[in-house]
């Protein structure tokens, strides 16, 4: 068990009721889709992986990244990129400020600025650094949120209904962009979704929750 994201005998319960039981390994570049109706606890699994599980839930099992145990690591030390349904760009920062928030510390001011400008060019938003994120279109915001996450140099991607907020045309585009980047960079992806189309496009294994099926 080495490269990739491993969910080792993960069991999450609320009170006495077990919500999730997962045992899976996601190799680099592969997308594991977790599907199921809303309220079944899909996002709870992501909260466990990021280390932000709300009190009231109890979890056992381990999360391993490239063989190293993450379970005791604080959320900010895990280097897991997460995208939600909403872009969640920080409204008080400019587009460039949001990217700088993600960009790992270090480097001169000019060098950081150059990284951000280059990153914006990469997602087709050249010269957008000083813009107010609230003035961007939905697709543009999604791309900025994606790039903000990538600049933090994550070692795995977590997608929480990440494409549900986009209209049909943008959806396919942004989805393809995310999956391409994950493949190029060799990042394991854990995707939570209720949309079959997302799972098909990912082309990887699928776990279905809430449909009496033995875990693993």
């Amino acid at each position: 068990m080495s490269e990739g994201l491993t969910l080792e005998n993960v069991r999450i319960a609320r009170g006495a009721a077990e919500l999730i039981a997962v045992e899976r390994h996601v190799p680099p570049g592969e997308v594991l889709a977790v599907m199921g109706p809303s309220g079944v606890g899909k996002s709870t699994l992501l909260a466990f992986v990021t280390g932000t599980l709300a009190p009231g839930f109890t979890a056992t099992g381990r999360v391993l990244l490239d063989g190293a145990d993450l379970t005791g690591t604080p959320p900010e030390g895990r280097r897991l990129g997460i995208l939600f349904q909403n872009d969640l760009l920080f409204p008080h920062l400019s587009v460039g400020g949001n990217l700088a928030f993600g960009l790992a510390p270090g480097g001169s001011r000019a060098a950081r600025r150059a990284r951000i400008d280059a990153a914006l060019a990469e997602i087709g938003l050249e010269g957008f650094a000083d813009r107010d994120p609230a003035t961007l279109s939905g697709g543009q915001k999604a791309r900025v949120a994606l790039m903000r996450m990538l600049l933090s140099d994550p070692r795995a991607l977590l997608l929480d209904e990440a494409f549900s907020g986009l209209d049909a045309a943008r959806r396919g585009q942004v989805r393809a962009l995310v999956f391409d980047i994950a493949r190029d960079r060799g990042l394991p992806v854990l995707m939570v979704t209720h949309d079959e189309e997302d799972a098909r496009a990912a082309g990887g294994p699928v776990i279905r929750l809430g449909e009496d099926q033995p875990p693993g």
Partner: peptide, 10 residues
């Protein structure tokens, strides 16, 4: 979720 995003960004 803003806190989760920021924590994920380190």
């Amino acid at each position: 979720r803003h806190a989760v995003v920021a924590a994920a960004l380190g």
